[in-house]
Nucleic acid binder design. Structure first.
Lengths: 119, 119
DNA sequence: GAGATATTTAGCCGGATGGCTTACTGTCTT
DNA sequence: AAGACAGTAAGCCATCCGGCTAAATATCTC
């Protein structure tokens, strides 16, 4: 049950990362907070279009923003990318373990092969 | 120029990962190859719908498949997730470096603060 | 309080996505 | 050669995506 939520969360994070503009924003925010306006200026894009990206970034919990006066400042969340990274690492671990097992299986096979050859 | 291609590639990989069904397929393939039919059976889904996922997985170069006779076997590519993982790690590194710098900046500040206090 | 500034809201648009069914094409199996 | 089986092709459909413009809403600044 909590699993479903978790799934939907990964859906959102990876979807968020699947767009070049959003990845660029993340990259920029990694070196410090910035206002929506500052961020938008670097991407030849109308502000309302850009705002949609900000919303996606926030909904996927990669970015937080807070408005003071008329300017909204954005920053990366401390644990922004850990969920995505975590999933990838776990999968990779399974996958590599299996490859290792396969290797040693093949090794075993060729040892047997040798043994047979030495008969 | 090669950069653009690289971007589009990341787009595809992350988009590929943004769907729970496809992540489940990857998880399953991590523990060994399987046919399209076997894979489809575990996801209450019509085969043609499922095939679209397989196509996405192949286009994002996460999975390879080969048809022998009437059955198509799928497996993970050896370097399936490295691009995605690589991007995440690089971003995270920048982000953490900055946090460290921020820490030491704050530390410097409070040292100055102390110095001033000691005047 | 008028005007500049920084968003924000609303809504349009073409194209992609992710599900479906139905019909076709090969490849076994008997 | 007939029928079962595994996958594909074609095309329908609702919804989402990522861009746009035009108009509204605050919040400075003078």
């Amino acid at each position: 049950m909590g699993l479903v939520i978790h799934m939907a969360y990964l859906d959102r994070v990876f979807h968020c990362l699947s767009d070049g503009t959003r990845r660029a924003v993340i990259a920029q925010l990694a070196s410090g907070p910035a206002s929506v306006g500052e961020l938008a200026r670097r991407h030849h894009m109308a502000l309302p279009s850009f705002m949609k990206h900000i919303r996606v970034l926030e909904e996927s919990e990669v970015v937080i923003s807070r408005k003071t006066g008329r300017v909204r400042m954005c920053q990366l969340r401390p644990d922004a990318l850990t969920a995505a990274q975590g999933w990838l690492e776990r999968e990779r671990r399974v996958w590599e373990t299996r490859l290792d097992q396969l290797d040693s299986f093949i090794e075993t096979l060729s040892e047997k092969e040798n043994a047979r050859g030495n008969r």
